[in-house]
Amino acid sequence: MPAILAFFFLTAVTLTAQEKWPIRLQAPQPALKQLPDKEGVQAWETAHYLMSWEGEVSRPHLNDLARVAESVPLLFRQLPLPLWAPPKGGKAEIRICKDETSFVARGGPIGAAGFYHGRQATVLIRGDLLLNPPQARATRLRIGPDGDLLVHELCHLAMHRYHNLPPWLSEGLAEYFSCSHLGKGAFNFSESTRRIPQHIRKFYPVERFPILELPSLQALTSLTSREWIRSNNTMDANERYRPYATALLLIHYHLEGGPERRNELSNYLTEKLTNPRIQTNPPPIIANDLEERLAKFWKPKGLSIRFRKE
């Protein structure tokens, strides 16, 4: 598809999107223009991104990941939430680093697979993990590039102009959309309640964690962005996904708990984007009551949880 047609396709979707939550979405294969190599790094351009790739990549994998990348702006423009707030100016970069050494040298945290570098408006991805994701215990895990990882980091890029969002909110949203990603730029939100337990159990298999302990909602929602990063960097590897899992469950509660909760979140985001310097509070969370309700809701769906008393 020529780039100009891709642009009009995305614009048309924006103008005709209904004010209701989408059920399914399949991104088309985007136009992909190869650019001159720079210092041995291959580069391509899509409608919204510059993609730089250290090392070799097959054309099928490149096409799949370009489709995944372009699916995020397509999706965000259809959502009845004001989430589409990317950096202003030119196209943001997706940098696929060949290994952890290159990833860390460019600003990625040690031990992470992906990172959105807000100051540079660049998504950094470890290519060795992107193309060869660690095999989890879940037998339904897809074989091939980890497009969910790319979706997660591109969600952060898409929300770039939101300043000082609570980390549970920004990380929870990124996890929710990556969890709803079926692969190759396809999303299905009708199955999120089934997919979320499967997603969390990839990190904490039921054989080892029959009852999964999660951070208390009070402890999680009180963290600042710096505290979240510091805590994540110092945690044992087995602990790192627990805050993300809790944030994911909170976002599911807000987005799939009826129009009133979703409207509260939408109003908060609108005010936050319009007046970034004004201190506004996210939708209220009554920790004790909500912890009990979440545990009760998810138990029959294959996810037994309890919240720590912190």
Score class of each variant (00 low, 15 high):
Y253I: 00
A237K: 12
H254C: 14
N233D: 15
S222T: 05
Y244F: 14
T234R: 15
R230K: 13
L255A: 03
L255F: 04
P243S: 08
E227D: 14
L255G: 02
E227A: 15
H252R: 09
G258R: 07
E239A: 14
T221N: 03
I229L: 12
T234F: 07
G258V: 08
S222N: 08
R242C: 06
N233E: 14
D236W: 06
R226V: 07
M235E: 10
L250T: 01
T246K: 02
P259G: 13
L249T: 01
R240S: 06
T246D: 01
I251A: 03
E227V: 07
T246W: 00
W228Y: 10
L255D: 01
I229T: 10
T234G: 07
I229S: 10
E239K: 10
Y253E: 02
N232D: 11
R240E: 03
L249E: 02
T224S: 15
H252L: 09
L223C: 04
A237T: 12
S222C: 05
A245H: 05
H254R: 15
L220M: 07
N232L: 12
R230T: 13
W228G: 02
N233H: 11
A237H: 09
W228P: 01
H254M: 15
N233I: 08
P243W: 01
S222R: 10
G258I: 04
R226M: 07
L248V: 04
S231W: 05
P243M: 03
T234W: 05
L249R: 00
Y241E: 13
S222V: 03
N232E: 10
A245K: 00
W228D: 01
L248I: 08
I251F: 06
W228M: 04
R226H: 08
S225Q: 11
T221I: 03
R240I: 12
W228F: 10
A247N: 07
Y244H: 06
E239L: 12
P259S: 14
Y241I: 13
E256D: 10
T246F: 03
H254T: 11
S225K: 08
H252F: 14
N238G: 12
S225H: 08
A247H: 02
G257A: 11
Y244A: 05
R242L: 14
Y244D: 02
T221C: 02
A237P: 07
A237N: 09
L249V: 04
T224R: 09
A245W: 01
R226I: 07
R242E: 05
N233G: 08
S225N: 09
W228T: 01
E256G: 10
E256V: 09
